[in-house]
Nucleic acid binder design. Structure first.
Lengths: 182, 182
DNA sequence: CAAGATACGTCAATATGACTGACATAAATT
DNA sequence: AATTTATGTCAGTCATATTGACGTATCTTG
C-alpha cells in the first residue's frame, strides 16, 4: 500500500498552528478559506456534472438553462453579462438547448430585436433535478447550523460578490428591494 | 439607452417572497445559496485570473502552483487526486511551471520513483500575490461578521465538501478526523 | 427620412484545458 | 524473476472559451 503518512508534506512555516493567523514576515493570508472555497465549489458543481453527462450536456449548458429557468424572459445580452462569456461561446450552447427543446425564444414586445429566453417544461425539469442535487448538499451542510448562522453564511457569500457594474440577475438578487417589481 | 427595468423578468411563481421557502408543488430548493455560490466563486477566481494573464498562465497553473506551495513535497499522484484531472492534463501545465522555474522536483528519499514537488521562491511569490488578492476579498466579506460568524462560515464550507475518499490535502485540512484509518 | 447605434446571429481561426488509450521506463514489491 | 507502482509521453479528440469580421433586422436620433 502507499504510505499513509505525508512524506515531507507539512504546513508552511509561516502558517503554523492557526491557519488564518498573521504570518511571521508577510501578511495575513486566508489560506484556510481560500482552500475551503476551492474544495466546496469543486464538489458542489461535481453533483451536477454526473447528471449532465446523461443528457450529453456540460457545465456551460447547466449555467445557461439554470438562469433562463430562474429568470424567465432573460435577454441574450443579459445572459452574456451573467456568464461573462462572449456571444460566440454562448451561441453554440444556446443553439443546442433551443434545438433540443429545453429553451424557447420569444421576440420582445417593446423591442423586436430582442430574443427573450424561456425554459420549456423539459428545461425546467432538468434544472429542478440538478438544483435538487445541489440543495441536498446544502441541506446537509447547514444541518448543524442555526437559522441565524445560515443567514451569516448568506451574508458572507453576498459580500464576496462584486457590486460594481452588476448584471441584471445580480440586480434582481440584491434587489433595490424589488425582486420582481412592486 | 436600453430599458432599465426587467422586461418580463420575474421570480418564478413557486419562489415568491422568501427565496428558500418551500415550493408550492415541488420541494424546497435552495435557489438563493446555489446562485450566491455561483457568483461568489465567479468573482473569487476572477481576482486571480487578471494577474495570471500577465504571467501567461491560466487557472490550471494557479491550482497547481498553489497546492505545491502550500503542501511542499506533494507527489504528482497526490496532485492528481486533489485537482481531479488526468496526468496527461497535469503534464503540460506542470512542465511549464518546471521549465519556467516556479516548481522544482526532488526524487523521493524512501521511494526513488516519486518526484516530490516544491515551489521555488519565484513560485511562492506568485502564489502569495494571488492569495493576497483573494484574501482582500475575503477580508472585505467578513468585515461585518464577528469571529463566531466567521467560524460558522468555515463550518458551512467544510460541510459542503465530500468526505468519502478524501485526498491527502483534504486529510491535512480536516486533520485528525480523517475517514481512512486511525 | 437618412444615418447611426443596438441586438443578435454566424463564419473562421485559434487557445486552453480537459479527455481516452497506448506505451515506456525506472524502481519497488512480491 | 515477475509484477506492480509512479511517472512521463505520444497521439488524437472534445468542450469551452477566445478575437475579429461581417450581415441583418430594428430601434433611435439628427
Amino acid at each position: 500500500m502507499t504510505d499513509i503518512n505525508f512524506s515531507g508534506m507539512a504546513a508552511k512555516p509561516d502558517s503554523q498552528g492557526d491557519d488564518h493567523a498573521p504570518a511571521a514576515g508577510g501578511r495575513d493570508l486566508r489560506w484556510d478559506i481560500i482552500e475551503l472555497l476551492f474544495f466546496a465549489y469543486r464538489d458542489f458543481v461535481g453533483d451536477a456534472d454526473q447528471e449532465l453527462e446523461a443528457f450529453g450536456f456540460g457545465r456551460a449548458h447547466h449555467r445557461v438553462i439554470h438562469f433562463v429557468t430562474r429568470y424567465p424572459g432573460l435577454k441574450v445580452a443579459d445572459l452574456l453579462d451573467v456568464l461573462r462569456i462572449t456571444k460566440q461561446s454562448l451561441g453554440r450552447v444556446l443553439k443546442q438547448l433551443l434545438d433540443e427543446g429545453y429553451i424557447v425564444q420569444k421576440t420582445g414586445n417593446n423591442d423586436r430585436r430582442q430574443r427573450l429566453l424561456y425554459a420549456t417544461p423539459k428545461g425546467e425539469a432538468l434544472v429542478a433535478k440538478l438544483a435538487g442535487l445541489q440543495t441536498d448538499r446544502i441541506n446537509r451542510a447547514v444541518a448543524g447550523i442555526d437559522p441565524a448562522g445560515v443567514e451569516t453564511v448568506r451574508q458572507f457569500l453576498r459580500a464576496m460578490i462584486d457590486r460594481d457594474d452588476p448584471d441584471k440577475v445580480l440586480e434582481a438578487i440584491f434587489g433595490g428591494g424589488r425582486k420582481t417589481r412592486e
